[in-house]
Protein backbone atom coordinates (compact mmCIF):
# COMPACT_ATOMS: atom_id res chain seq x y z
CA UNK A 1 0.00 0.00 0.00
CA UNK A 2 1.12 3.53 -0.69
CA UNK A 3 1.46 5.58 2.49
CA UNK A 4 -1.34 8.02 2.99
CA UNK A 5 0.58 11.06 4.16
CA UNK A 6 0.63 14.67 3.10
CA UNK A 7 3.99 16.18 4.04
CA UNK A 8 4.96 19.57 2.67
CA UNK A 9 7.80 19.59 0.17
CA UNK A 10 8.91 18.20 -3.17
CA UNK A 11 7.13 14.84 -3.10
CA UNK A 12 7.05 12.64 -6.23
CA UNK A 13 4.15 10.47 -5.02
CA UNK A 14 0.98 11.80 -6.67
CA UNK A 15 -1.96 12.54 -4.38
CA UNK A 16 -4.30 10.28 -6.35
CA UNK A 17 -2.26 7.16 -5.54
CA UNK A 18 -1.74 7.71 -1.81
CA UNK A 19 -3.52 5.12 0.31
CA UNK A 20 -4.07 2.83 -2.72
CA UNK A 21 -3.13 -0.86 -2.99
CA UNK A 22 -0.94 -2.14 -5.80
CA UNK A 23 1.63 -4.76 -6.75
CA UNK A 24 5.29 -4.25 -7.58
CA UNK A 25 5.88 -4.43 -11.35
CA UNK A 26 9.67 -4.05 -11.15
CA UNK A 27 12.49 -2.59 -9.14
CA UNK A 28 14.00 0.31 -11.12
CA UNK A 29 17.18 0.74 -9.07
CA UNK A 30 18.10 3.17 -6.32
CA UNK A 31 18.11 6.91 -6.76
CA UNK A 32 18.88 9.93 -4.58
CA UNK A 33 15.76 10.94 -2.66
CA UNK A 34 14.12 13.83 -4.59
CA UNK A 35 12.55 15.14 -1.39
CA UNK A 36 16.11 15.90 -0.21
CA UNK A 37 17.60 16.86 -3.59
CA UNK A 38 14.99 19.59 -3.97
CA UNK A 39 16.54 21.36 -0.98
CA UNK A 40 20.12 21.02 -2.27
CA UNK A 41 20.93 18.15 0.07
CA UNK A 42 22.66 14.98 -1.10
CA UNK A 43 19.62 12.70 -1.29
CA UNK A 44 21.75 9.92 0.24
CA UNK A 45 21.26 7.15 1.08
CA UNK A 46 19.73 6.39 -2.29
CA UNK A 47 16.13 5.16 -2.13
CA UNK A 48 15.02 2.02 -3.98
CA UNK A 49 12.48 2.99 -6.64
CA UNK A 50 9.70 0.64 -7.74
CA UNK A 51 7.15 0.63 -10.51
CA UNK A 52 3.86 -0.24 -8.89
CA UNK A 53 0.82 -1.45 -10.81
CA UNK A 54 -2.69 -0.50 -9.69
CA UNK A 55 -6.04 -1.59 -11.05
CA UNK A 56 -7.80 1.56 -12.24
CA UNK A 57 -11.02 0.46 -10.51
CA UNK A 58 -9.11 0.40 -7.19
CA UNK A 59 -7.82 3.93 -7.81
CA UNK A 60 -10.99 5.61 -9.08
CA UNK A 61 -14.27 4.34 -7.57
CA UNK A 62 -16.19 5.61 -10.61
CA UNK A 63 -13.72 4.33 -13.22
CA UNK A 64 -15.59 4.00 -16.50
CA UNK A 65 -13.10 1.94 -18.53
CA UNK A 66 -12.52 -1.81 -18.55
CA UNK A 67 -12.05 -3.80 -15.30
CA UNK A 68 -8.48 -4.87 -16.10
CA UNK A 69 -7.19 -1.41 -17.06
CA UNK A 70 -4.18 -0.42 -14.96
CA UNK A 71 -2.04 2.57 -14.08
CA UNK A 72 1.64 2.12 -13.25
CA UNK A 73 3.43 4.66 -11.08
CA UNK A 74 7.03 4.99 -9.91
CA UNK A 75 7.13 5.09 -6.13
CA UNK A 76 10.09 5.29 -3.74
CA UNK A 77 10.39 2.60 -1.10
CA UNK A 78 9.83 4.96 1.82
CA UNK A 79 6.33 5.61 0.45
CA UNK A 80 5.39 1.92 0.38
CA UNK A 81 4.08 -0.34 3.13
CA UNK A 82 4.17 -4.12 2.71
CA UNK A 83 0.90 -6.01 2.98
CA UNK A 84 0.21 -9.62 3.83
CA UNK A 85 -1.93 -10.53 0.84
CA UNK A 86 -1.15 -9.90 -2.77
CA UNK A 87 -4.13 -8.43 -4.57
Amino acid sequence: MVREAYPIGHVRTPYYIRGKHGVIERLCGAFPNPEELAYARSGQPAQPLYRVRFLQRDVWPDYAGQPLDVVEVEIYQHWLEAEEHAR
Partner: peptide, 12 residues
Protein backbone atom coordinates in the same frame (compact mmCIF):
# COMPACT_ATOMS: atom_id res chain seq x y z
CA UNK B 1 -7.66 -4.56 -25.07
CA UNK B 2 -6.54 -3.42 -21.65
CA UNK B 3 -5.07 0.04 -21.21
CA UNK B 4 -1.90 0.52 -19.21
CA UNK B 5 -1.21 4.14 -18.26
CA UNK B 6 2.39 4.92 -17.26
CA UNK B 7 2.80 7.88 -14.94
CA UNK B 8 6.45 9.07 -15.11
CA UNK B 9 6.60 10.34 -11.57
CA UNK B 10 10.30 9.83 -10.85
CA UNK B 11 13.51 8.78 -12.61
CA UNK B 12 12.26 6.63 -15.51
Amino acid sequence: VLIRVHDSTADM
